[in-house]
Nucleic acid binder design. Structure first.
Length: 565
DNA sequence: TCAACAGGCGCG
DNA sequence: AAAGCGCGCCTGTTGA
């Protein structure tokens, strides 16, 4: 059973039951308390809620203590379909719905990524606010249209799974934001103080460097023999000061500086490390993003073209390793940290239908297995494999790359074909059918062939073409890995819901590409680990069908995130 | 004065 | 000969 839902004024809402093909079964029903109505239906029988944008609707339900098991998120599905069919394919009704959504949004409100562009175009037209009944009618039309377009996909079942998983991802994202990642502000503060010195007093308009950074700055200037103090935060200034000391470098990147032998280098490297911590995850970050012992990032489902998630604010997907000691389970609770081991090479093995490579990826360490298969050491094999997926030659791994091609011709041909498609301006799709963006107008104009043989040799054309080849080469792997991880997340979420004991519910609290963290009562950790493994096995089967490739999860039951791995 | 850009670095 | 993929966010600089 599907039920379409649109919030109305106050706590009210409008509902309509739909058949599985999206046809309305009865006239819309107004309810005074939407959350209560949803909770009743959810308890009765399995419902797939159809709504326009879970990111907006669901947090309200969660605040009222109501969870749902399944949904169809029309905004997220629109993103998938628009990536597949192009913006011109978007039906008029959805455009109108997007416009209304944008019109109803407060200025500066985030708009779901799939409709961001069109919404921003229409934002200025001040569309009239539509009634909940009008919006529901539109939603029903859009939903039915989407079901038809999903069904028409050449990868119908895969693409349908993707739409379902993307929608479930929307639910998980809202729930994770509501739950928050356990974060010990006191531990974080202690670490900052230990590394940087005491927190500088707030000086209006005059941000102070913490003691340790000020000290290093002075030492750096001295080591460079600079007359005036050098600001290490200014690459241009630093570059000049280095040159004045006879150090000629193309940039001030850590990787470049590391190769230089000079007394100032260790000071600079230390400064960069600490300054990064201070600016990216220092006290002001703590003030801004951590409250009540929780860090609550806002996830952007499908925010990356490959289907990976992004986050808005707080840089949640770049939590530095040194800070992971601040992620600590509540007393009596524990963290289950699980990540998919060597996900991308395994995905390539499963995708490419390369028997030899699949057998190689059937075991515990793909890189070691590849190394022994091609007769190279593990490091070289790893670089070669990554190069094959990223489009580099791997420098040192170049030879191994050639061996890789000989030993695993089908896997190589698979990524090469993806690269050719990109270079020629075509699009590629993930295993479940997520579609990469078409080439930009700028790319087309740079690479378009002209009759003039002089122009054809424009090196810019070749560069742009190869760059897009690397992008599509990587896309098929990264996006398929994202497919798998999303299906894992959806399955895990469902399994965890079944472990709910009197509100002592294991909570998904973090998701980062190929890694999840579950916060659970200590007594449930073993069951959570089992759930993770079952979800991984199920994801493998749903996404890749029968395959020899294994997708093992590395799980750790820990008190602090830093204790994992 | 402020927005856009460049350089840089954190994560996968 | 050299170079890989995808992000978010910070500071400093530049230019309208």
């Amino acid at each position: 059973m599907r039920v379409a839902l649109v919030p109305g004024p106050g706590k009210s809402g409008v509902l309509a039951s739909l058949a599985d093909d999206g046809t309305p079964l009865s006239p819309p029903v107004e309810v005074p308390d939407l959350a209560a109505a949803v909770a009743r239906r959810e308890a009765d029988d399995p419902v797939r809620w159809v709504w326009d944008c879970g990111g907006r609707v669901y947090p309200t339900l969660l605040r009222a203590g109501v969870r749902v098991a399944r949904c169809h998120d029309a905004a997220l599905v629109d993103g998938l379909l628009t990536a597949r069919d192009g913006p011109a394919s978007r039906p008029g009704t959805l455009t109108a719905a997007s416009a209304r959504r944008a019109g109803l949004a407060a200025p500066g409100d985030p708009v779901p990524s799939g409709v961001r562009e069109i919404a921003s175009q229409l934002l200025f037209e001040e569309p009239p606010a539509a009634s909940a009944h009008e919006l529901l009618a539109e939603l029903i039309t859009v939903h039915k249209d989407q079901l038809g377009r999903i069904g028409a996909d050449p990868l119908a079942s895969g693409f349908g799974l993707l739409a379902t998983a993307e929608s479930a991802g929307g639910l998980a994202a809202a729930e994770m934001t509501a739950a928050g990642l356990p974060w010990r502000a006191d531990v974080h503060d202690e670490l900052l103080t230990e590394l940087l010195g005491p927190r500088p007093a707030a000086a209006p308009g005059m941000p102070l460097r913490p003691a340790r950074l000020a000290e290093l700055t002075a030492q750096i200037s001295a080591a460079l023999g600079a007359v005036r103090p050098v600001n290490p935060d200014s690459p241009a200034q630093l570059l000049r000061a280095l040159a004045a000391s006879g150090i000629r470098v193309p940039s001030t990147r850590v990787s470049v500086l590391r190769a230089v032998d000079h007394p100032v280098i260790p000071l600079l490297l230390r400064y960069k490390e600490l300054a990064r911590l201070h600016t990216a995850n220092g006290w002001s970050w703590l003030d801004t993003w951590v409250a009540g012992g929780r860090f609550r990032p806002e996830y952007v489902v499908g925010g990356v073209v490959s289907g990976r998630w992004a986050t808005r604010g707080g840089g949640a997907l770049q939590i530095p390793r040194v800070l992971r000691c601040a992620v600590v389970a509540d007393p009596g609770w524990t963290l289950v940290v699980a990540d998919a081991a060597q996900l991308e090479p395994r995905v390539l093995a499963a995708l490419a239908g390369d028997r030899a490579f699949a057998q190689t990826a059937a075991g515990g360490d793909v890189y070691a297995a590849v190394a022994s298969a091609v007769g190279a050491d593990r490091d070289r094999a790893k670089v070669a494999l990554l190069s094959a997926m990223y489009g580099g030659t791997g420098g040192d791994g170049g030879q191994s790359l050639a061996l890789l091609r000989r030993r695993f011709p089908q896997a190589s041909a698979f990524v090469e074909a993806a690269a050719r498609a990109g270079e020629e301006g075509r699009v590629v799709r993930s295993v479940l059918g997520r579609t990469c963006p078409p080439p930009s107008a700028a790319w087309l104009s740079v690479t378009s062939e002209s009759g003039d043989p002089e122009l054809e040799r424009d090196p810019e054309a070749g560069r742009a073409s190869r760059a897009r080849g690397r992008f599509t080469r990587n896309f098929v792997v990264q996006a398929s890995a994202a497919d798998w991880a999303l299906v894992l997340l959806a399955g895990l979420r469902a399994r965890l819901a079944a472990l709910d004991v009197d509100g002592q519910r294991p909570e998904l609290v973090f998701f980062q590409h190929d890694e999840v963290i579950v916060h659970c009562p200590a007594g449930l950790a073993a069951e959570v680990v089992t759930a993770v493994e079952a979800a991984a096995a199920s994801a493998t089967n749903l996404v890749f069908g029968a395959t020899e490739v294994s997708f093992p999860m590395t799980t750790a039951v820990v008190t602090a995130y830093s204790d994992a791995k």
